[in-house]
Simulated assay, not measured.
Amino acid sequence: MKTSTIIGWRQDEEQHWVVVLSCGHTQHQRHQPPWQSRPWVLDPEQRQAKIGQPFDCGWCAQNADSANLGN
């Protein structure tokens, strides 16, 4: 899996948090217990602390083209 870096955050139209990666891809980071437990994503300081951290990009692992993903 290709490791990218977290460069920012945005929210989608449903107000779910989306991580923006250095490779150009994005990935939802939802907190929807019990399926997805990421309470830190709801805290602005904890999200900010993730910027600059490595992130395994599943899209890159699939050789996906950013232009075709509808970021």
Rank of each mutant, 00 (worst) to 15 (best):
D56G: 14
Q53S: 11
F55G: 00
T3F: 09
S66F: 06
S22M: 03
A49L: 08
W35S: 14
D56C: 14
R47E: 04
R30N: 10
I51F: 03
G52A: 05
A67I: 01
W9A: 06
G24C: 04
G24D: 04
S22Y: 01
I51E: 05
P34D: 06
N63E: 15
W40D: 11
L21R: 01
T26N: 12
S22W: 00
A64Q: 07
E14G: 00
T3K: 11
R30P: 10
G8K: 06
A61R: 11
P33I: 08
R38W: 01
Q53K: 14
W40I: 13
P54S: 05
Q48F: 02
S66P: 15
N71V: 09
S4R: 07
P33E: 11
Q48A: 14
Q46H: 02
L42E: 09
E13S: 08
Q36D: 12
Q48R: 15
R10K: 14
P39D: 08
P33G: 03
S37T: 15
R47I: 05
L42P: 00
G52D: 03
R47D: 04
L69I: 05
L69K: 09
F55W: 15
C60D: 06
E14N: 06
T5F: 02
D56P: 10
G70I: 07
Q27H: 09
Q27Y: 02
N71I: 07
V20P: 06
A61N: 14
T3S: 14
V18M: 06
D12A: 00
K50C: 15
A64W: 02
L21S: 08
S4V: 04
M1D: 11
T3C: 09
E45Q: 14
H25F: 06
E45A: 14
S4T: 12
H25M: 08
S37K: 14
L69Q: 11
W35V: 13
E13V: 02
